[in-house]
């Protein structure tokens, strides 16, 4: 099982690097959708030997929302806003990739003390992998201009948090798991509505140009 989960985490790390290096928003949405599938696979791979129906159903629901529904919503938003590329990000794509590599190393470093006292049975790569996904999302949010790319960053962050939850075997009650999933879905949905309104009002979705309010 460890080998399998390690492989999946490595794939997750690669998707993050692709997110950091790609300028096409369409490609980024595609990558986030792949992440959604990987999340489901990781959740099943790290679970204890017997798969319960509840776990399988929840995982399927997560994959359905994160790999199908949200990417579909985002693609519609891209068409609506008529923006297909992240032009001139605040941190360039080459620099972002280098930052990503550094972040990855950092994640392995800082997860060591936590790893030492982690609950038994957690693979060596899961904690740093999840941490890297979360930090990549955060970095995307602060280093990109387009509101849509920032939403993708937020989704990546949420994916990282989800991997943590799955790998630490946090068994939440069904209601709470569904609540978290619903919140993420509604969150992206509301962000999509606000992006639509911003685009109608300003004719652009460059968040760095939203700078009237300040002291």
């Amino acid at each position: 099982m460890d080998v399998l989960s390690d492989m999946l985490v490595m794939l997750l790390v690669l998707t993050n690097l692709r997110l950091l290096s790609s300028s096409r928003i369409g490609a980024c949405i595609h990558t986030v959708a792949i992440q959604g599938v990987l999340l489901g696979a990781i959740a099943l791979a790290v679970s204890p030997a017997t798969l319960s129906i509840k776990l399988v159903a929840l995982t399927l629901a997560t994959v359905a929302v994160k790999a199908v529904l949200l990417p579909w919503l985002l693609r519609r938003a891209v068409r609506g806003a008529g923006v297909s590329r992240e032009v001139e990000p605040i941190v360039g794509f080459t620099a972002s990739t280098i930052v990503g590599a550094l972040l990855l190393g950092l994640c392995f470093l800082i997860s060591r003390p936590l790893q030492a006292s982690a609950p038994a049975g957690i693979g060596k790569t899961l904690i740093p992998g999840a941490m890297f996904t979360t930090l990549s999302g955060l970095f995307l949010i602060v280093s990109r201009r387009k509101a849509l790319t920032q939403v993708l960053g937020y989704l990546t962050m949420e994916n990282g948090v989800y991997v943590f939850g799955a790998s630490l075997a946090v068994r939440e009650p069904l209601l709470v798991e569904l609540g978290i999933l619903l919140d993420v879905f509604v969150g992206v949905f509301v962000m999509g509505i606000v992006i639509y309104q911003i685009n109608r009002e300003f004719d652009h979705i460059d968040t760095d140009r939203l700078s009237v309010l300040k002291d």
């Binding site: 982690a118 609950p119 979360t134 955060l138 949010i141 509101a147 920032q150 937020y154 962050m157 949420e158 948090v161 943590f164 939850g165 630490l168 946090v170 978290i180 969150g187 509301v190 962000m191 606000v194 992006i195 309104q197 911003i198 009002e201 300003f202 968040t207 939203l210 700078s211 009237v212 309010l213």
Partner: peptide, 30 residues
Amino acid sequence: HRSLEATWKYLLICSVGIALALLGVFFLAA
């Protein structure tokens, strides 16, 4: 335009913050 700017900042900053809080909740469990 000003209220939309405020809404966007509110949504994004608070959602990101609260995502970190979820990580904190998972850490408590672990």
